[in-house]
Write a protein that binds this DNA or RNA. Structure first.
Length: 111
DNA sequence: ACAATGACGGACC
DNA sequence: GGGTCCGCCATTG
């Protein structure tokens, strides 16, 4: 469990650094925590983020800029609503100007 | 310990 | 350009 919390904690730490009105990808976060090939785990960690409301999981999308995780939120379009609320335009479950809004997290150098 | 799964990503067709 | 398959790696059954 400790290990798990550690892994998720890395993801949460980086996710919290995502500026408002900006988005990032699972792969970007994965690299930031030193697990470039664990992009799926990032999404998995996001699933656990429900326990931590300090993690803006709605700002995390896949490499396509598609709101893949929107289905995991309470509402069907809750994720989109949150993004639009922050100024991120979303159309067809996809982030508009995704490339421009894409924010690359800094490498989390814990310890 | 083994097999299946998954909020991804890249390679391949 | 679009659809499909495989690989990654931690979590869960």
């Amino acid at each position: 469990m400790d290990k798990q919390a550690n892994f998720f904690e890395r993801v949460f730490t980086v996710a919290r650094q995502i500026p408002v009105g900006r988005v990032t990808t699972y792969g970007a976060i994965a690299r930031a925590i030193g697990a470039a090939r664990s992009a799926r785990m990032v999404g998995y960690a996001m699933n656990a983020s429900h326990d931590d409301d300090t993690v803006p999981a709605h700002r995390v999308v896949n490499r396509n800029g598609l709101l893949t995780g929107k289905f995991h939120f309470d509402g069907t379009n809750l994720m989109q609503q949150l993004l639009e609320n922050e100024g991120v335009e979303v159309v067809d479950n996809k982030v508009v100007n995704f490339k421009e809004l894409l924010w690359e997290p800094t490498v989390y150098e814990g310890e």
